[in-house]
Structures are given as C-alpha cells and as structure tokens.
Simulated assay, not measured.
Amino acid sequence: MKKVIFTDLDGTLLDRFSYSYNQALEAISLLHNKEIPIVFCSAKTRAEQEVYREELNIEDPFIVENGGAIFIPRDYFLFPFNHHKATKDYLVIELGIPHRKVRKVLKRIKNEVGCHITGFRDMSVEEVARDTGLDLKFAALAKQREYDETFKIEDTQEKIELALAKIEEAGLSYIRGGRYYAAISGNDKGKATEILIGLFRRKLNKMETIGIGDSQNDLSMLKAVDVPVLVQKLDNHWEEINLASIYKVEGVGPQGWSKAIKELIGG
C-alpha cells in the first residue's frame, strides 16, 4: 500500500534549537528510495520551507503558516481541482486571510488597549534572529509571512489578557509558542491535511497516511491521518495529547522522527 508522510518541522524533523535535520537524513533517503511523499505541515513560511525542500530534494506539496495555505507544485496532480490562485510554480489553496488584514486587526487592538504588541513585521531581521535563535538568512525568511502574524505582547498581565480577548472578539484566533503568539483566521493544519489527503487519494487510490509531530499544535494534523506519531520533546517526555491511537516513539526531534520512519516504513 502506498504511504504519504505529513510532518511538522520545528522540534520534529528539525532540532528545536539548531534547526538541523542531520539526524533524519538516512530516513529521508529511505523515503526518497521508496518514492514516498513528504509533506511539510508547519508554522513556517513558504519562503522558509522552500529552503528545506530544496536542500532535502523534496518536491511534494506543503502546508504553511499553521494551515494558512497549501502550495501544490504545478503538474503534481494530473487532474483538475479547486484552488484559489496560481503562481509560476504552484497552485495555491488558501484557508487563511491575507497577512495585511491580520496586521490591521492587531494594530487596531494595540491602539484600543494601549499595550505593546510587536509583530515580526515591526522587527528588524537582527531582532528576529536574536529573539528566535534563527540565523540572519532564516530570520529574514520568517518575516515573509502571508497568512498570519507572529507577535509578542510585553505588558501587564491584565493588558495581555484584554488584548488576547479582543483578538478573539475580532474574529481571529491565536496560537501560543513560548514568548510568541501567532494571530490567524481560518488557518487550520487539520483541514489543510484533510484536503491534501483527498487529493492524494485521487492520485494513489489505496494509501496510508502517517503524521509526525511533537506538540499540541500538531493535534489537528495528527487527528487527520491514519497513523499519528509523537516524538519526544527536549526533556525526553511526550507532550500530553488527547488522542487514543497516538504512536509514541522514543527520541527527541529528528532522532525520534528517523526512528519512527524506520519502524513504520522499514528498511
């Protein structure tokens, strides 16, 4: 039976701090040899993901900005399907609203509440690099957001809670990761995964889908696949995820990712 891999990036395929995928290279070669698609499903931007796709010789569709959009290489699916726009390289299915609209809402809330909201777009490349641990190249790519805005709120707890409540009142939602939040509207990793699974079924007929993640933010993707896999976090524990069928693999980040592929796909 054909298989398709859906994977998170940070803390899963990529090391949480060094962003290295070296420990997963052998498993990626195994997937290439068996012609098994590797679909990125991540908070990272299109620009960031394109670098990893090129470096790892991956030519499959990918899901950006927490399910903000699906980028499908032209001629990948040789049948017509609904999409929202076409670029030189991709057919794009959009679930999220444009970045500029998210920014507009955040700016209004910042003024209403009188709090200090700072988005990636407000920061220099150097500031993003210093805050995130990304190098300057990837910090610049992380700023190129199209369907969400990464931001931080530096203020009293009362103002932080008020700003977050107003974000939801405005019809947006937010995801928290460390110091930062992602403001989104319509972005859905699970729905994006389901859409792609439907397209792959039209292409491959019978198939099995495997999803690999490390955190609660991956839950909707993991719920959408046949075999959900959880790798360990830095202190060698698995995040608490309410999913009965979850396959927990030992190994942090790319080490666990590699082990999962070898166990589920075989040599």
Rank of each mutant, 00 (worst) to 15 (best):
S215T: 12
V252L: 12
G213F: 01
Y76I: 00
S258Y: 01
V105T: 08
G114T: 14
R145Y: 00
E208V: 13
I160H: 07
I197H: 04
A224T: 12
A27Y: 03
Y247P: 05
S42H: 01
A244F: 04
E263C: 00
G211A: 09
Y147F: 11
K152S: 08
E65Q: 05
Y247C: 07
K101D: 15
G186V: 07
D89V: 00
I5M: 01
C41Q: 08
R53W: 08
G198C: 13
P80L: 06
V229C: 15
D122R: 09
A140G: 01
K44Y: 11
L13Y: 00
N66R: 08
S258N: 05
I28N: 07
M1N: 10
V92C: 01
Q157L: 14
T45K: 11
V113L: 14
G68E: 02
E50A: 06
A69V: 01
L25Q: 03
Y90Q: 00
L95Q: 06
I117F: 14
N205R: 12
A260L: 02
Y174V: 15
M221T: 11
K191Q: 10
E55A: 07
N242Q: 13
T118D: 05
L91E: 06
D75K: 01
D8S: 11
T209F: 06
P228H: 11
T12R: 00
Y247W: 10
P254F: 06
K206Y: 11
V225T: 04
K137F: 12
G68V: 03
G266W: 06
T132W: 13
N217F: 09
H32R: 13
L78V: 10
S124W: 06
G178L: 13
F77W: 00
F81Y: 09
H83D: 02
S20A: 04
G211V: 11
G178I: 15
L136S: 13
I160E: 14
D235Y: 15
S245V: 09
H237G: 14
G256E: 00
T193L: 05
I109H: 04
S124L: 05
K104F: 12
G171H: 11
K191E: 11
E26P: 05
E194F: 01
Y247M: 06
K203A: 04
I38N: 09
E240H: 13
K203H: 10
G119Y: 09
D235M: 15
R46F: 10
L162N: 13
K110E: 14
A86I: 02
A142Q: 00
H116W: 10
K223V: 10
A24H: 09
N22K: 11
L172V: 14
T45I: 11
Y90C: 00
T193V: 08
G171N: 13
Q157T: 14
D148C: 02
V229G: 15
K137E: 09
G177N: 14
A192Q: 04
F6L: 03
G198L: 13
A170Q: 07
L56W: 11
